[in-house]
Amino acid sequence: MKLLIVEDEPKTSAYLHRGLVEQGYAVDVAQNGIDGRHLALEFDYDVIVLDVMLPGLDGLAVLRELRQRKQTPVIMLTARDRIDDRVLGLQAGADDYLVKPFSFLELVARLQALTRRGRNTPVAQLRVGDLEIDLFARKAWRDGQRLELTAKEFALLAALARRQGEILSKTVIAELVWDVNFDSDANVVEAAVKRLRAKLDDPFPQKLLHTIRGMGYVLEAR
C-alpha cells in the first residue's frame, strides 16, 4: 500500500510518516505543494493525504491539477473548520476530509475505508482466539459456550471482530455500532464495552477485549 503525505508542518509529517510506516504503508512525504504535485502526478499512490494550507501551491490547487489526470483517492487535512473549505475540497474531488485537530486513529480508519472500498468480501464467520462469531445467525461462542448477548452487544463485538487487532477509537465505535457521528459527552462506548466485557471476558481466563488507554479498544488474542 503506497501512500503520499503532503504536509508542511514538520512535526505533523514526521509523526504521520512514522505512524503510517508502522501500520504497514510505504510512505512518501512532500513538504510543499509543488513537490506534492510532482510526486502525485509522477507516481501511483493508493491514497494521498493532502493538507489544505501549503506553501508554494495550496492543497486545493494540487487536488484540482491531480484530478485532471488521476483519480487517486485523496484525504484533505484542514485546520479551518469552515464549511466552505469542506465544500471546496469535496467539489475539487477530495474523497474525504479531516479537520485538525484530528486523531491519528481516525486517519488510519479513514485510510482503511478508502483503500478497502470496492473489495468488500462478505464474511460469515469470524474467529478471534477461542471466540467464534457467526455474523449471519448473529451468535457468538467462546470455547464452544454460547454467549448470551443483546443485539447491541453483538453489534459491538462484531465491529471489533471485523477489525481484530486494530485499535478502534470510541468515536469510530459509536459510528459503527450506533451510527452516531458526533462527539458527545456521553460515555456510552465505555459503558457498553464494560457490559460486553462482563459476558465476553470475565468468565474466561484469556482476555480478548483490551483497553488502550486514551485511544480506544482492540479485540485480539494476545
Binding site: D81, P101, S103, R213, G214
Partner: peptide, 25 residues
C-alpha cells in the same frame, strides 16, 4: 503510562476545541 495519561488530557483538549469551533461556526 505517562503517554497514555497525556493522551487522555489531549483528547480532552481536542474535545473542547472541537466544541468551541462548532459553537463558533
Amino acid at each position: 503510562e505517562v503517554l497514555q495519561s497525556n493522551l487522555e488530557e489531549l483528547e480532552r483538549l481536542r474535545a473542547i476545541i472541537n466544541d468551541m469551533l462548532f459553537l463558533a461556526r
